[in-house]
Design a protein around this nucleic acid. Structure first.
Lengths: 152, 152
DNA sequence: TTACATGCAAACGGTTTGCACCCGG
DNA sequence: CCGGGTGCAAACCGTTTGCATGTAA
């Protein structure tokens, strides 16, 4: 299914559906974890797949463009992605102590954002909402631990 | 006023209020534009201020930590900041065509986020919401232009 | 057959760091 | 006086790119 979407997207742009692109796509959809380009590359290599880092870096923007993946967790300085097809948009609660990422979706929230955009005559295409704080477990345990990035 | 906050923060941590840190703080609060560390450095140099790039990079995390600045516009791969003291939190609408950044604040939106966090037993500290799309002007003109990052 | 894609390694660019000297408290 | 701070330049590291070669359509 993802294949079909990607294939048609590439065709429309006069690009080719190569083994490498197929492999990246497959890996991206093999589970629902967040990942960064290097993660993906290492994992693919570990499975004996034939691909170069350059191809991973060149393929991800295409997947972004056709909407099969989204960028997330941009608090850090390098890119993180998650695949979205079959999951729909959602936001993230991120625990600054244990790093846990909790997906969050609220129809009401989405609608409110839309209406705010309308007030500003702004045509919204995508958005990202990330909320940082302490998850229930870490909150219980107290926040004695060291956090990676103070103030974030 | 910002000076006082920063000073007390540094003192509490056993750090020093140096000329360089004071200069960075001053520059950060000289206007309300977004900036990246290099912007800031270049601007300070242009004004004949005595500071090194390293000090700028070393000072910004301190300002983050004491809440005088926030990180924004994290769609790009390098850090962007804005000072927040005296302005309060707000979100951003970002035009992907002309790059215009429109601040947005909605009490209702903030409250809704809070209640969603409560449902998840998540203690929210900070959040970032960035909405990407076309501003009214670019929407009028049509979106024929080239965008830097497809799909974002 | 012919664009377009790949892999490699080098280049890039923002950020961090080691070190010798400096300075605020 | 001393522990933290600074400037410089080199190191880092994720990402991009030039180029010769490979390949989907």
């Amino acid at each position: 299914m993802e294949d079909k979407i990607f294939r048609e997207f590439l065709e429309k742009k006069g690009l080719k559906f190569t083994k490498e692109r197929a492999a990246v796509l497959k890996e991206v959809f093999s589970n629902h974890n967040h990942f960064d380009p290097d993660d993906l590359y290492v994992k693919m290599k570990g499975q004996g797949m034939k691909v170069s880092k350059a191809s991973v870096y060149r393929t991800l923007p295409l997947l972004l463009e056709c909407g099969l993946v989204e960028q997330v967790e941009r608090f850090d300085k390098h890119a993180h992605y998650e695949h979205t097809f079959g999951h729909g948009h959602h936001d993230h609660l991120i625990c600054i102590k244990c790093g846990k990422v909790i997906p969050l979706f609220s129809e009401k929230l989405e609608k409110l954002q839309e209406s705010l955009c309308k007030q500003e005559k702004f045509r919204c295409l995508t958005h990202i909402l990330e909320i940082k704080g302490y998850c229930s477990k870490c909150e219980e345990k107290g926040q004695g631990g060291k956090q990676k990035r103070p103030g974030v």
